[in-house]
Lab assay of single mutants.
Amino acid sequence: MEVRTIKVFTTVDNINLHTQVVDMSMTYGQQFGPTYLDGADVTKIKPHNSHEGKTFYVLPNDDTLRVEAFEYYHTTDPSFLGRYMSALNHTKKWKYPQVNGLTSIKWADNNCYLATALLTLQQIELKFNPPALQDAYYRARAGEAANFCALILAYCNKTVGELGDVRETMSYLFQHANLDSCKRVLNVVCKTCGQQQTTLKGVEAVMYMGTLSYEQFKKGVQIPCTCGKQATKYLVQQESPFVMMSAPPAQYELKHGTFTCASEYTGNYQCGHYKHITSKETLYCIDGALLTKSSEYKGPITDVFYKENSYTTTIK
C-alpha cells in the first residue's frame, strides 16, 4: 500500500517557510505537534488534498525554529505562539472599519479597549522592536488589523473576551517599542525636605499616572512627601515624541487643539466601556464603527496623549 502524501510549508514567522512532505494517514499533531492554519487549530486533523502548498504555523520545537521565533517575536515564552494563534482565530472574524481616516474595530468580545489602543497607536510616533509587531502594525494602518490585535493580546497575556485596560495595554506595548531616546527629568520640591531631581528613561519617561493635564504637570502637581507634608512635583525636561497622561476616570474637559487623542471610560472596574476622542479640525468621538463630532467635550476621561518633541522648564 502506497503512502499518500502532500507537500506543505511549516513556519513560526510566515517569513521562513520549511518544506514538509506530510503523510495523509496521520494527523498534523502526530507529525508536527500543535499546528495552526489561519489561526485555526488543526492539530487533530489529517492532511487533505486542499492543504497542498498551504502554510501551517507550528510551535518552535527545534533550534532553527526557536531562533526564527525569537528573532521575529522577541520572546522565548513557549506558550506565546499558541496564544497568538488562538487569538487570531477570533480577531480574523472582527470587522476593521476605516473611521475618520483611522483603522478602528467594530465592537465584539469586549474589544473596546483594543480599538482605543489601536486608534491611539496610529496617532503617536512609535516604532516597535519585534519585527512581528512592526509588520502587523503597518498592515493594521492599511486596514488589516487582525494579526496586530492578536499579537497585542498575546504580548499582554490576554484572551479574547476578557476586559482590558488601555493604560495597561499601552504599557505592555511600550515595553516592546523603541523608547531608548526618551528621557524625563522631574523635580520634587518640599518646604521641609528641599528639592530632589529624578531622571527617568524609556517607558517611565512617557507615562504618568495622577493627572490628565500635561500643562498642569509642567506647572506642578501636589504629591505627598515622605515627611508627610505636601510637596510639588513638576516637569523639568521632556525628550520624547509623545507623552501619555493618565488618571482614574473623572469628568474632564478636553479643549480642541490642546491634545492629540484621549480615552474615555464609562462604567466601573468590573464592567465598563471605552471610547476614543481625537482632536482634528474639530473633536471626534470614535466608538467602534461609530463616529460623532463636537466642538467641545466633557466626560469621564482616563488617558490623554500629547505630541511632544523637546521641553525644558522655565521655572527657576
Rank of each mutant, 00 (worst) to 15 (best):
T116E: 03
L212S: 06
T10W: 05
I6Y: 09
N61C: 10
S310E: 12
E281H: 05
T302R: 05
A205G: 02
T27W: 08
K183D: 03
A69P: 03
R4Q: 13
M244H: 03
P241H: 06
V21S: 12
G220N: 01
D135I: 09
N187G: 10
Y84E: 02
K44E: 14
I6R: 05
K218S: 03
A205M: 02
F148C: 06
G210A: 00
D77Q: 07
K54P: 02
A154Y: 01
A117W: 01
H18C: 06
A205R: 01
E204S: 11
L59K: 11
M85E: 07
N178G: 08
Y284K: 03
K93N: 14
E71R: 08
T198M: 12
T278Q: 14
L114V: 15
P249W: 00
K7G: 10
V185D: 01
F148Y: 03
Y138H: 12
L163D: 07
C271E: 08
Y28F: 15
M85I: 04
D38S: 09
S294P: 07
K255T: 10
T116A: 07
A145F: 00
T159A: 14
D165K: 08
D180W: 08
A150R: 03
T27R: 09
N129D: 09
L291R: 09
T43L: 05
A146E: 08
Y284C: 15
Y269C: 15
N100A: 13
V99G: 07
L163H: 07
R4P: 11
D63K: 09
L59D: 14
A262K: 05
P131S: 03
N129M: 06
L17I: 14
G194N: 13
K219M: 13
A262C: 02
K93W: 11
M244R: 00
L88S: 04
G82C: 14
K183T: 10
Y284R: 03
N14R: 13
G210P: 04
C225E: 07
L121G: 04
I45P: 06
C285Q: 10
V166K: 01
V304C: 02
R141T: 11
P241T: 07
Q30S: 13
T313K: 15
Q197V: 10
F217R: 02
R4C: 14
T159G: 09
L65Y: 08
A69Y: 11
E71D: 09
K255M: 09
T302P: 01
G143K: 01
D165H: 06
E253C: 08
V243G: 04
L153Q: 03
M85L: 14
A142K: 14
E68D: 01
Y214Q: 06
G288F: 00
G288Y: 00
P249E: 02
Y113C: 13
T169H: 07
N147R: 10
A142Q: 14
A69K: 05
K275V: 09
V166T: 08
M170W: 00
H273K: 00
V21C: 14
M85C: 04
K158Y: 00
E308C: 07
K307P: 14
I6T: 11
C271M: 15
D63F: 09
E281G: 05
V188Y: 08
G53M: 14
V221Y: 04
T312K: 07
Y84P: 01
V99H: 11
Q195I: 12
V99Y: 12
L186Y: 14
Y113S: 05
M245V: 04
F70V: 10
K280D: 08
D287S: 00
H256F: 11
L153M: 11
G194W: 00
D135T: 08
T232V: 14
N110K: 03
K307D: 08
I286C: 08
L65E: 07
L151S: 06
Q123N: 10
T43S: 14
H74L: 14
I105R: 04
T302L: 08
Q175C: 06
L121D: 05
Y57K: 05
I6S: 07
L81G: 04
D63V: 11
H51N: 05
K92P: 03
P78G: 11
V236W: 10
D109S: 04
D13G: 05
G82I: 14
K95A: 10
Q98C: 12
V189I: 11
K92W: 01
Q222I: 07
T258C: 06
Y297A: 02
Y84G: 02
T19C: 10
R139H: 13
D63H: 12
N89A: 11
L235A: 01
R83N: 11
A69L: 11
G143S: 03
C261S: 06
K293E: 14
D63T: 12
T312Y: 11
K307H: 12
L88G: 02
A40K: 12
G299S: 04
E308S: 08
C285R: 06
C112D: 00
L37E: 13
T302G: 00
Y72G: 05
S295P: 08
L200N: 02
Y172D: 07
F9K: 14
T103K: 03
T75Q: 12
D303Y: 02
G257I: 01
C225I: 03
R141F: 07
I315Q: 15
G194V: 03
K280A: 13
D165L: 04
Q123T: 05
E253P: 09
G194P: 06
D63Q: 07
L200C: 11
V58W: 07
T55I: 09
V189T: 11
F148T: 05
N16A: 09
V8P: 07
C285W: 00
A289S: 11
K218H: 00
S295Q: 15
D23Q: 13
P249Q: 03
T314E: 15
E308N: 00
D180L: 06
Q197W: 05
L283H: 07
I15T: 13
K293W: 08
K93T: 12
T5S: 10
F242C: 00
T226G: 14
M209A: 15
V188D: 02
A142P: 04
L290E: 13
L254E: 02
E281W: 00
